[in-house]
């Protein structure tokens, strides 16, 4: 893309992108850390991740401020307008992913008070998919890669499928051994958190697509999460 004639305009726009990218990487690390704390049964790590969420929130505030300034002072149009509005939306989605990582660490605290449960491996696999999706969507943003954005958008289905499996597994686990109920029920929320991470990444992919093409992704978003209607036969 050609450069703005006014170099300071270029600077504020590239600073804004850099800040989004920075936030994306921080959120990805937060998610990896939350899963690591769960996997290694490390309450200190969980606590650290919980505290770090303030940093994510602060970057979100900073991005909001930058966007307000660009709108007020530069009156962006065309690709600059799409870029500016997308930054605001993407930051909001990343902030929500950060919240989900934090919430996972809160639940981890309770889970770690109980004995290890079956089905952990599936949850962690699901977590790895979620991390990969976040990684890809951040790369799609940085590289201005519309194909990768579309791939992220389609990948949400995979995470939804995982969620359905994990959910059924946890419900069955609770039926078999009701001493697991505290840990398992917290774990269902963890699974739901990871599923929501996929949804937020999908929203980011949509924003990236709009910035790059000026058009919305025209198909309906894949939705395969069936946990809201999942039951086990008693």
């Amino acid at each position: 893309m050609n450069e703005h004639i006014v170099t300071s305009y270029n600077d504020v726009m590239s600073d804004l992108s850099a800040e989004i990218s920075h936030m994306g990487h921080l959120v990805r690390k937060q998610l990896i850390g939350a899963l690591k704390a769960l996997e290694t049964r490390n309450p200190d790590l969980a606590k650290r991740i919980r505290k770090n969420d303030k940093q994510v929130d602060a970057i979100n505030d900073d991005i909001e401020e930058r966007v307000m300034n660009i709108l007020a002072l530069r009156q962006p149009v065309a690709v600059d307008l799409r870029e500016t509005i997308a930054a605001l939306k993407i930051a909001r989605e990343l902030e929500r992913i950060g919240d989900l990582a934090r919430n996972t660490t809160k639940r981890t605290k309770v889970i770690l008070e109980e004995d290890p449960i079956d089905g952990m491996e599936e949850i962690l696999k699901m977590g790895r998919v979620a991390v990969k999706i976040v990684e890809n969507v951040v790369t799609a943003y940085e590289e201005r890669d519309v194909d990768l954005a579309i791939a992220v958008w389609n990948a949400d289905e995979e995470i939804d499928e995982y969620c359905n499996t994990v959910f059924t597994q946890l419900l069955s686990g609770m039926m078999v051994d009701n001493s697991n109920i505290n840990a398992c029920s917290q774990m269902t929320f963890v699974a739901k958190n990871l599923e929501r991470v996929g949804d937020h990444a999908t929203n980011i992919a949509e924003s990236i697509h709009y910035v790059l093409t000026g058009e919305k992704i025209d198909e309906r978003r894949p939705k395969s999460d069936k946990t809201s209607s999942t039951i086990v036969e008693i």
Binding site: E3, I5, V77, A78, L81
Partner: peptide, 19 residues
Amino acid sequence: IFKNPKDQRTQDYITGRTG
């Protein structure tokens, strides 16, 4: 034109870019 111009020259002009 102001949200999604089709031609690069339009985009460069309205966003203040060098063509």
